[in-house]
C-alpha cells in the first residue's frame, strides 16, 4: 500500500544563532502505512517531538524529504492539504491555544479550511463530547487546568477529521482513567481506519500500538511490533527506557516457574497466563 507518510534520509538541526547549530535528526528513513498504529519512544531529548513536527511540515528537513500522501512537505503549495491529512496534538497544550473561548479554539482549524457552519458546529460538539469538555465550551482555554487544556487540544485535532493524528505526549497530564479514555478514542479511530502515531513515556501505552519505533540521539535504533521490542529488556534499559509492568512481573515469575511466559506485554495476557498456570478447579 502507498504510505501515508514517508521519510527519506531526513536530517535536521536547530539553529541557535549564526554560529551554533544543534543537530537533532540524523538520516532518518521510514514509512507509515494508512491505518497503522505506531508508538514512538525514546528518552528525554532524543528527538521525538522534533520528528513529530516533521510529519506534517511544521518543520522541514535540512537534508532528505518527507512525503505526505506523496506530497513533499517542503513544497509550500502542499501545506494546506498536508495539515488536513496529518493533525498534531503538541506536547505542550498552551502552545496550541489560539482562541479566547474553548469552542472557538476547537473550531479554529475548521474555519481555516472553510467548513460550512452547520457542519462545523456538529464537529465541534462531537469533539468536545469525546474529550468530555462540553460543559467548558464557553470558558477561556488558557484559564483551564492542565488536564483540561490537554483535552481541548485533542478536541481541536479530532474535529479536523484528519487521516492521521500525531499525539505528542498528549495524555501526560491526565489521570489513569482519562488516559484510558483517550487510548480508547485512539483505538476506535484506528479501527475506523485512521492512522495513529503516539509519542509516549508510558510503556503500557506503547504496548497498545501495532508497531514501536525507538529513537536514540536522532536515529531509529529499533522498529518492530511491541512484543518484539519488549524482548530487548537490557537494550531498552541502556536507552533509559523500560518494559511494561506486567512484563517485569512475568519475568520475575518466570525465574521461579520456567514455563511461565516472559513474552507478555498486556494486562489481559498476563492474567490469562496466571490462570493457565493454576487451573485447580478444572481438575
Amino acid at each position: 500500500m502507498e504510505p501515508i507518510i514517508r521519510l527519506e534520509n531526513v536530517s535536521f538541526s536547530y539553529k541557535i544563532n549564526e554560529k551554533t547549530k544543534v543537530s537533532v535528526l540524523k538520516n532518518i528513513s521510514f514509512s507509515i502505512i494508512p491505518g497503522e498504529y505506531v508508538a514512538i519512544i525514546g528518552h528525554n531529548g532524543s528527538g521525538k517531538s522534533t520528528l513529530s513536527k516533521h510529519l506534517n511540515g511544521i518543520l522541514t528537513p535540512d537534508n532528505g524529504d518527507v512525503w505526505v500522501h506523496g506530497n513533499n512537505t517542503k513544497d509550500t503549495n502542499n501545506k494546506r492539504s498536508i495539515r488536513q491529512t496529518v493533525g498534531t496534538v503538541f506536547q505542550h497544550p498552551d502552545n496550541q491555544i489560539v482562541a479566547t473561548i474553548v469552542e472557538e479554539d476547537v473550531a479554529f482549524g475548521l474555519e481555516n479550511i472553510e467548513v460550512p457552519r452547520e457542519e462545523m458546529k456538529k464537529r465541534v460538539d462531537e469533539a468536545l463530547n469525546v474529550v468530555k469538555m462540553s460543559q467548558f465550551r464557553h470558558r477561556p482555554p488558557h484559564h483551564l487546568s492542565g488536564g483540561q487544556k490537554q483535552r481541548v487540544a485533542i478536541a481541536g485535532v479530532l474535529a479536523m477529521h484528519p487521516d492521521c493524528i500525531v499525539f505528542d505526549e498528549a495524555t501526560s497530564m491526565l489521570d489513569s482513567f482519562g488516559r484510558k479514555e483517550v487510548l480508547q478514542v485512539m483505538r476506535k479511530m484506528n479501527n475506523m481506519g485512521m492512522t495513529i502515531i503516539t509519542v509516549t513515556h508510558h510503556m503500557s501505552e506503547a504496548a497498545e500500538a501495532d508497531r514501536i519505533i525507538v529513537i536514540e540521539d536522532g536515529q531509529i535504533v529499533m522498529d518492530a511490533p511491541p512484543r518484539e521490542i519488549f524482548k530487548h529488556k537490557q537494550e531498552l534499559k541502556n536507552l533509559q527506557l523500560e518494559v511494561p509492568s506486567v512484563s517485569q512481573m512475568a519475568e520475575g515469575i518466570h525465574q521461579q516457574f520456567p514455563d511461565f511466559s516472559t513474552e507478555l506485554i498486556q494486562e489481559d495476557e498476563f492474567i490469562d497466563e496466571v490462570m493457565k498456570f493454576s487451573k485447580v478447579e478444572v481438575i
Binding site: N44, Q91, S172, H201, Q240, L241
Partner: peptide
C-alpha cells in the same frame, strides 16, 4: 506533576 514528561529512567 513532577514526573510528567520524564522518561522512565529520569523518573
Amino acid at each position: 506533576e513532577p514526573t510528567a514528561g520524564l522518561d522512565p529512567k529520569s523518573r
